[in-house]
């Protein structure tokens, strides 16, 4: 369904001397039809940029992005517009995704009008149907976003997206601003509509607990690069890359009696303007060797689609 090859995005910065932030630096991955891929990483690793690049909301510096065998980077404006309804995004902050001066019903009607999906007479019925599907009440149709809670607005955003029958959805931290219970309701809803519409998803999150229950495959990102890719169960049961291991061990365990070793990483994420030489993780890696400082590790398949980029796994 989605295939990305050697995707790069450098942002230029600096007024006098040009420097480049390597936000995304040579990413390749694929998402099969009906599959959900989780993109995991800490803030500033470039995961949001990947989500936007895939939908061509920003232009990449280099690389190819295929949607069902069409390289969307080669499409002209008109063809891209035709493709847009098939690929949609749920942003992190629902309040800023909705027009504050539009009633919820009007917001949902927008895409229906724009792409002429149902006739004018059928519109109201379609809106009620969508509102019900995402678990809002009919009375919400005539409310403004500021009158609803964050969770309800996020539901409205989902209703608006479903209105145009998308095939592929990027969900960028869709629940990170929500309370635990509202988050559970939202994830439940996402699972439901994903099944019902047979959606393919890229689920971007820093929350590994959420990723674990929502995805089939995981791609772990560090400083603009992928360090490990594999089936969700394989990663959670046997992460190979030291960074993935540290990430997993950092999840607070919901059991006060659990005894475990935590790998606490020292230091912070390096500046992507000036990433470390060799393996970009070597400055924080507890197992680094000489070679890690010099040579960049290649992505190697260690079986069953489980890939890892680390010198320790030659």
């Amino acid at each position: 369904m989605i295939k990305v090859e050697n995707l790069k995005k450098y942002f230029s910065t600096g007024m006098f001397s040009k420097k480049y932030v390597r936000a995304v630096d040579g990413l390749s991955f694929a998402i099969e039809k009906g599959e959900t891929l989780g993109l995991v990483g800490e803030s500033g690793c470039g995961k949001t940029t990947v989500g936007r690049l895939i939908l061509r909301l920003i232009e990449p510096t280099e690389g190819k992005i295929f949607f069902k065998n069409t390289n969307i980077l080669e499409l002209n404006k008109k063809d891209l517009r035709k493709l847009r309804p098939k690929m949609q995004i749920i942003f992190q902050d629902p309040d800023s995704s909705l027009d504050p001066r539009m009633k919820i019903g009007e917001s949902i009607a927008e895409p229906l009008k724009l792409y002429n999906i149902v006739s004018k007479n059928g519109r109201e019925e379609k809106i009620s149907e969508l509102i019900e599907m995402v678990g809002l009440n009919p009375e919400h149709i005539n409310r403004y976003p500021h009158e609803l809670s964050g969770g309800q607005n996020q539901r409205a955003v989902i209703a608006r997206i479903l209105a145009i029958n998308p095939k592929f959805i990027v969900a960028d931290e869709p629940t990170s601003s929500l309370d635990v219970n509202v988050q559970a309701q939202m994830l439940f809803l996402l699972k439901k509509v994903r099944e019902k519409f047979g959606l393919t998803c890229l689920f971007i999150s820093h929350d590994l607990e959420v990723i674990k229950v929502m995805t089939d495959k995981i791609a772990v990102m560090y400083l603009g690069k992928l360090v490990e890719v594999g089936k969700t169960s394989d990663i959670f049961n046997g992460a190979v890359h030291p960074y993935t291991q540290a990430l997993l061990s950092a999840i607070p365990v919901l059991d006060p009696e659990a005894k475990r070793k935590r790998i606490v990483l020292g230091g912070e994420i390096p500046n992507p303007i000036n990433p470390p030489s060799g393996c970009s993780f070597h400055t924080r890696c507890p197992y680094r060797e000489r070679i890690c400082e010099i040579e960049e590790p290649m992505m190697i398949d260690i079986g069953d689609g489980h890939q890892v980029a680390c010198h320790l796994n030659r």
Binding site: V180, N181, A184, Q185, D207, E209, L254
Partner: peptide, 12 residues
């Protein structure tokens, strides 16, 4: 509340 956590069932 406990049951709604992703690690404990995700039942809202």
């Amino acid at each position: 509340f406990l049951g709604s956590l992703p690690g404990r069932g995700l039942k809202p």
